[in-house]
Each structure stands twice: as C-alpha cells, then as structure tokens.
Design a binder for these strands. Structure first.
Lengths: 222, 222
DNA sequence: TTCACTCATCATGTATGCAAGATGGTATTC
DNA sequence: GAATACCATCTTGCATACATGATGAGTGAA
C-alpha cells in the first residue's frame, strides 16, 4: 500500500544501498552519476538525489566534479559506531526496565525464547533477525528519535557484521545470549541485562574484528 | 578558507536553516520551492537539494506535489530529543572520566571557570556558548559519530532552547552548573559529573517547558 | 629520461522544460 | 441551500541542457 508512493528516487536509493550491502559496489569503488542513471534507467536528477541521501547516511562521498565513491572501510569509524550502538542499547534497556509494561517485547519473546528445535540455522537469516532484535529493543523503549539513530548505525555496521554469523557456534551463542538478555529485562534486572547486552555486542564486535584483520592480512599478502 | 567551496546549495541550506532558527519561517508555515528560489536568487535545483537536506535533518517536510512545510512544533519529539541528548552526554562524561588526559577540555575550562567579573551576561551569546559547552564536551570524548548525532540534536532543540537564557538568574545558574560539572570531570568523579549534568539539562528542559506551556496557553486564549 | 605545461575530455553543479497529480473554486444537481 | 463533480491553476518529480572546474594524456624542454 505504501509502495505506490515509491518515487524513482526512492527506488534508486534502495537499489544503490542494496548494491553496497551486497558488495556489488565495493568500498572504495568510484562511479559516476551517468553510469548509475543508465543502469537504473533514469535521468541524473533522481540519481543525484538518491546519492545525496546516501552521502548523508554515510555510505558514499562525492568528489567535487570528480565522481562518487563508496566510502572506504574505516575501522576507527566502525569502532565508534559500535560504541555508540552500545550506549544507545544500554540506555534503551534502562528505559525498558523502568517501564511498567512493555508489550512491544512480546514479539521478541516469541521469536527468541523458543526451544532449540524451533531455532533457525541459516546464517544470513539469523543475522537479519539479530539486527531486528537489537532494533526492536530500542524501538520498544518508545523513543522514536533514538530508534532512528540506532537504525542508521545498524545499517552502517551491516557491511561488516555480515562477516559474523557464518559459523554455527555464533548462531547458537546468539540465541542463548538474546534469551538471557530478554529474561533479565522481563525480570527488570537492569544492570544484569545491560552487562549481558554489552558483553554480547562486544563479543560480536571482537569476532568481526578478528575476521576482518585476517582478511586484511590476506589482502596485503596478495 | 573552506568558504570557497560553498555551493549555491550550501548557501541556501544555511540561509533557510537560519530563517527557521530566527522564526522568519515559523513552524507550520507552508512555502514553495519557487518562492525560495526567487528569494535566494537561484533556480529550483539547489533549492530542492537544500530542502531535501533540511528534511533529512528534521526541519521541514514535503507534501507530495503540494508544497513544503516547516515542521510544526512537536513537544513529544522535543522530549525525546532531550532524553537522547542526556544519554549521549552522560556517555560522553563516562568516556571522558575514563581517559587519562583530555586536552580538549582546556578551552572549556578557560571559558567557564572564570571569576564572576569576567562572565558574559548577554543572553543570546550565553546560549550560544552553552550549546558550545555541551557540544565540545561530547567532541572531547573522541567519538566523532557521537558528536555528529549530538550536533544534530542540538540544532533541532535550538528553536525552543532560545526561550531559555532570557533571564539573568538562568545565565548565572548556567555558569555555576557548568563550572561544577567541569570540576567533577577534572577530578574524575564520573557519577557526580553525570548527576550534575543530568540535573543541569533537566532544569533547563523544565524551564523551557514551563515557558512554552505558558506561550501555548496564551496562544489558545487569543 | 623526467618534469612541467597545455588542452581536450569528462563529471558535477546549476538552470530550465515538461508531465503528473493535488488543490481550491465554481457550477450544477438534488 | 448543500453537496458533488469538474476544471483551471499550481506544485512537485523527473528529464534535459548548459557552465564550470577537475583530470589525465600528450608534448616539449631541461
């Protein structure tokens, strides 16, 4: 129903973002508006607008009269985003635990607090659901502005977080940790929930860093 | 030096934002791209781009083929922004207190930790400096992404925060409170600094709410 | 061989033209 | 008199044309 209102700009914006997520456009790649316009079967105007949004979102940069570039990997920036993400989610948990009721948590419970046999095992799907878990946690606390900032951070981290969830142990751990966090929130144990969540994110971050460094090391050797 | 690179779009973006801050464009006001283009002596293209940025920043909204509107006051949103701002600044203080050194704090000390006779008294100037205080606090902790989010929030709250700082007692209080916060940070008393800062912001928020409600009440009576 | 300069080419930034749809006023009907 | 339908006008969304400055290949001199 909302799709009717999708403009050409929106379509191109989504498509480009997806290409970046899918590594069809690699970090550091350079391209022109004309190229994108041809590929997307549109004129430069909506392409420019879409690129402008993506720039504001932190995915691409424009070089004055010299083309566009997919933002190169910047590990310091990723660390900052992880840190900010942790702050936001800790704040969200604090708010959640202070609330009397939080019906918004129900869908989370229904997905994550399930017996082992009902759990998913497909890596990419679990990554998607992991993202949803953290986003919904922030959304549930009722501060839409917080949720918006958090969503942007989540998207910007998606590129490297996909490296996680490639191995079964991490998937299993994710289920276990999410379960623990939810139960702590339900029991209104703020500090415990915060501690668990911080550990959960840091662990995932460490995993990603490890693999990323490995990839970098390999790349340098070639 | 950086001004050379200011495009027409940038100029219009800044000008429009300033007009919104100055209430030359009032919340709820509707206008067209053509109007702005004429006023700014430019074509619709850069106007559109500037408006698009302002929309993303949360200052205006576009109505499909029906003109633009300065975002009307939304007090619930302001509360959310205040809350988010507090979270960010508390996190910044935590980081600052954990750091060994923080030379970035020096300019803050030089401005706020001064004898009474050296203090400014001009309301608008102090408001500007108050904004700078909080922004620099976040910048000093070294997370640029955090600082960026915080800056956007600060700008969006500027419209209502200008109501504050109209009375001498609030200016005096601001000096006193900022001084206390800085001293607590210098002594690495994290919790005390956080408590002071939260109280400081909540007080300012309460003041703004009081005056705003008063204004609304008056507006309804006319 | 290497460095510097020139100029054609190309990419973005800006202006303008055109189309689809929203709006508001007027006329018509009940 | 009220409500509805229709039409002129207006506004944004998209396409295209033009201007300005960046880039890099090629040439000439040291």
């Amino acid at each position: 129903m909302t799709s009717k209102r999708q403009s050409v700009t929106d379509r191109i914006y989504d498509a480009l973002k997806q290409e970046i997520f899918d590594f069809a456009l690699l970090p550091g790649d350079r391209f022109t508006e004309q190229e994108v316009a041809q590929r997307m079967q549109a004129s430069r105007t909506p392409v420019r607008e879409a690129l402008s949004r993506l720039q504001r979102d932190g995915f691409v940069t424009v070089m004055f009269r010299a083309g566009w570039q997919v933002k190169p990997f910047d590990f310091e920036k990723f660390d900052q985003l992880y840190e900010l993400r942790i702050f936001l989610e800790l704040a969200a948990i604090k708010k959640l635990c202070e609330q009397q009721e939080s019906p918004a948590l129900d869908s989370l419970k229904n997905f994550w607090l399930v017996p082992v046999k009902d759990r998913l095992s497909h890596g990419p799907t679990v990554r998607e659901q992991d993202e949803a878990f953290h986003c919904q946690l922030v959304e549930a606390c009722g501060n839409e502005e917080m949720a918006k900032v958090h969503r942007n951070i989540t998207e910007r981290l998606r590129i490297i977080r996909r490296i996680d969830f490639t191995q079964a142990p991490r998937i299993e751990a994710t289920y276990k940790e999410h379960g623990k966090i939810l139960r702590a929130i339900i029991k209104r144990r703020t500090l415990e929930a915060q501690r668990l969540l911080q550990a959960h994110i840091l662990e995932s971050q460490a995993e990603v860093q490890k693999i990323t460094l490995h990839m970098l090391h390999q790349a340098r050797q070639t």
